[in-house]
Simulated scan of single mutants.
Amino acid sequence: MSISHMNELSKQGEDDVDPKERQGLVEEQLLGIEEEEEDVTLSSSLSSYSSILSDSPEEVAAAVASSPPQGPESACPSLTAGQAILLSQPQKECPGNEDEEGKNTREDPEDAESSQKEALRLKMVDLVVFLVVKYRKKQPTTKSEMLSHVIKEHQDHFPEIFGQASRCLRLLFGIEVKEVEPSNDIYFLGTTLGLTYDGGHCLPKTGLLVTILCLILLEGDCAPEEEVWKSLNVMGLYDGREHCIYGEPRELITRVWVREQYVVYRQVANSDPARYEFLWGPRAHAETSRLKVLEYLLNLKSKNPLSEEAQGKEEEEA
């Protein structure tokens, strides 16, 4: 069954498709992907947490943290974010005056391409910051607003920038960008899978919570602690080491989320030495479902870096 077929089933709603049958179809599709590509695992997919930002999630974290949670509507955080990132990067030594040496000052094509990619990457970071501010203020946004405030001179690359920013928001922060009025290109931002927890601070932490719930589900609803940490290590998260977005992960996972009833952390029966495992907590069961998580995983495993929405708009414009 193709992904497009699965998307059609999803759009039909639970009234038209039996939930158990729908869940079975999603599981079948996930298994099909894994059979075609043996190396496709959740761990490899989650490596996108770092690779999507050239191994520098700190850039987005610093940019979001430096942006004001409240401010005038006309204020665009992208300028501050871009400047902060540029200042945090090592500056290249300025070459000598090529005119004086009689050298050709034209830019090398490879350098021009590299500069273009870096400019688009910075615009992606700027757009992430802009959308996180919108999320904090519970305000919708529009395509025209994103173009005028953030994208500016790179408007031809909007589908690429928007697609990457949407993926970054989903993976790092657990924020979904949803088009609520397609005719007017109006978007609203909410938490992934309908979860109500976001950390309550500057940087939303729902992205990691979704990851933990996915890992538990894929381990048969009961994930050994050692397997969870193997996957988190792929993302650059280590026991006892502060992370730029999530803080100290063990504290967050085994205490905060246990207290919030999203996760159950318990000792494996009769284990000596003691081993521990994770299960979904009652709040996770109340706010989301296995089906939603499986569909999320199916979307995560898609190779296309652009969101379906951005891809469709690009095809229409072409």
Rank of each mutant, 00 (worst) to 15 (best):
Y276D: 00
R22M: 14
L203I: 08
E317M: 10
M124V: 15
V150I: 11
E176I: 00
S56V: 00
L25Q: 15
Q70H: 11
L294P: 01
S289F: 03
E93S: 13
E308W: 02
E93W: 03
E317L: 07
S231D: 06
P305Y: 01
I186N: 01
P95D: 04
D39F: 07
H5K: 12
R290Y: 01
I33N: 08
T141V: 05
G32I: 02
A112D: 03
I151E: 00
F188T: 14
A81L: 10
Y276C: 09
E37K: 15
K313I: 01
S307T: 15
R266W: 05
E260K: 15
P273A: 13
I245L: 10
D239Q: 13
A65H: 06
G13E: 03
A75D: 11
E309P: 00
L169V: 08
R250V: 04
P109Y: 07
H157N: 13
S302Q: 14
G71W: 02
P249N: 09
L189D: 05
Y187F: 15
G32D: 11
L79Q: 12
P69Y: 06
A310M: 07
S231Y: 03
T141N: 08
T191F: 01
L79T: 15
P159Y: 04
E36N: 08
T191V: 04
V256M: 11
Y197V: 11
E14D: 10
C202S: 13
A81N: 07
C94G: 04
H5V: 09
K20E: 14
N184C: 10
R22N: 06
S51G: 02
Y246M: 04
F130A: 05
L9C: 05
K92S: 14
L122H: 06
C202E: 11
K103Q: 08
G220Q: 07
M124P: 01
A65R: 13
L300D: 03
V180Y: 01
L215N: 01
S43V: 06
E37P: 00
V210P: 01
M124H: 03
L42E: 08
L213W: 03
D156N: 12
T80K: 09
S67M: 08
A165S: 15
A284Y: 05
R106N: 12
L218Q: 14
F162T: 01
C222W: 03
R167W: 02
Y296I: 00
C168H: 09
H149V: 04
H157R: 12
E38K: 15
L120E: 14
Q83L: 13
E181K: 09
L147I: 12
G82V: 02
G96R: 10
Q29T: 08
L195I: 12
S88H: 06
K134T: 00
L30A: 07
E314G: 00
V234A: 05
L208H: 04
V133D: 12
L9W: 03
I253K: 00
T206H: 05
H285Q: 14
E179F: 06
F188N: 09
K303G: 10
E277D: 10
A119K: 07
E251T: 14
E295L: 07
D126N: 12
W280M: 05
S50F: 03
G194M: 02
F162K: 07
S48N: 11
V129L: 11
S45G: 11
E287S: 00
M6N: 09
K301A: 08
E36V: 06
L213A: 04
